[in-house]
Design a protein around this nucleic acid. Structure first.
Lengths: 138, 138
DNA sequence: GAAAAGCCTGAAGTGGCTTCAGGGTCAAGG
DNA sequence: CCTTGACCCTGAAGCCACTTCAGGCTTTTC
């Protein structure tokens, strides 16, 4: 299968596939006489694995580590556990941050009910006020 | 006040301040005879404004727009409202995504209770399985 | 007068891609 | 046989919001 079909069947852009190869996340594929890349089912599998990990918010470096772990089946899976635990903590923290952000944004939006002149706009006044006291809050 | 003091009093790195100047988010400051930047209280205010907007997840481009709006006090604040509404939608969407992600990560973590060999690790098996059926889910 | 602290510039690096410029290859149709 | 169009190739640059680095000047302190 060549790169276009791999791209279609995984929903990953051609450029991204080539990028993963450069980054050594995908094994170097065979080539045709015309220098086209030729992929095996193994590549499809690995590309899906990468994208699934990415959808779990893992960095490419983390995916690289996981692939390394997968390639040494007799080792311990400690690394995997640690990585996942850390990720869970990170995501929880980010969710908390975003919840606070939601509150702030909605509160800010409440300051301007009807469009008005800039100089009397409640949002802009509030933005400036908050920026001023920001340091005190922290 | 020179750049170091501005940095200390706002908690923004010196390099970041210079970067904002290059990006035209901060007005060009005066200089001393020795070519050191000299900032006024106006700069402190504007820098705080920028950082507060950034803490609300706005891009520098959006901050640039807001600063532009602030500089024309007689205009309408429609832009501000629109920008904020859009931001609220974005953040809500991101929170929903992250909630799903939390579920997935915790479920995945549940597959490995005690550290074991890679080849029998529930997490890695699950990761591979999920990657495989991922397309079907979507 | 020398060391240390502070400041300057321009360029390059970060991550995870995307886009661009300028080509080569291959199958189908005229 | 030739051309058109779909498909593929490479290397370099662009994106965002900074950060880091290399190499050098200025000011303060001892």
């Amino acid at each position: 299968m060549q790169i276009g079909e791999l791209a279609r069947s995984t929903g990953v852009k051609i450029e991204t596939i080539r990028y993963y190869e450069r980054e050594q996340l995908l094994p170097v594929p065979q080539r045709t006489d015309g220098n086209y890349r030729l992929y095996s089912p193994r590549h499809v599998e690995q590309l899906r694995f990468i994208r699934y990990c990415r959808s779990l918010d893992m960095s490419l470096e983390e995916v690289r580590i996981l692939i390394g772990v997968l390639d040494t089946p007799s080792g311990s899976c400690q690394t995997v556990n640690a990585l996942l635990d850390e990720k869970i903590v990170e995501v929880d923290a980010r969710v908390n941050e975003l919840h606070k952000l939601q509150d702030q944004l909605r509160q800010l939006r409440g300051h301007c009910q009807q469009p008005d002149e800039v100089k009397t706009c409640g949002i802009l006044m509030e933005l400036n006020r908050s920026a001023g006291i920001d340091k005190a809050q922290i």
